[in-house]
Amino acid sequence: MARSTSKDAQALFQSLRSAYTATPTTLKIIDLYVIYAVFTALIQVAYMAIVGSFPFNSFLSGVLSCIGTAVLAVCLRIQVNKENKEFKDLAPERAFADFVLCNLVLHLVIINFLG
């Protein structure tokens, strides 16, 4: 039983990897960016667990800026993904412009909230 699951898992990862190699580089860059953001968020959560939640607003803004960045990047990824049929009539340029606007708002708020 355990063997079969592990085999299945191996097969699964194989197919996952193969599927992922097929994705265009633009999306890969986005994925990298998302992973970077999520990773930073996790580090901050761990840091908060160690030093305590005193400047809570700073913690919040730090973590939320990471999460926000990640979420927005995911949204962008969804929109520029050519396989996604839902957004055919949405030009990638438009999607990117929206993304930039969204990020600007996000970071403005973060700076406001940081201090």
């Binding site: 803004s61 999460i67 927005l72 969804i78 839902e86």
Partner: peptide, 28 residues
């Protein structure tokens, strides 16, 4: 579920929470 739902929901929560926390009366 659709990716539109994701776009409508996820950024709204993150941005909305941050913005709400900016209002002094709501705050944390």
């Amino acid at each position: 579920y659709s990716s539109r739902l994701y776009i409508a929901y996820a950024p709204f929560v993150v941005l909305g929470t941050l913005l709400a926390a900016l209002v002094p009366v709501v705050g944390f």
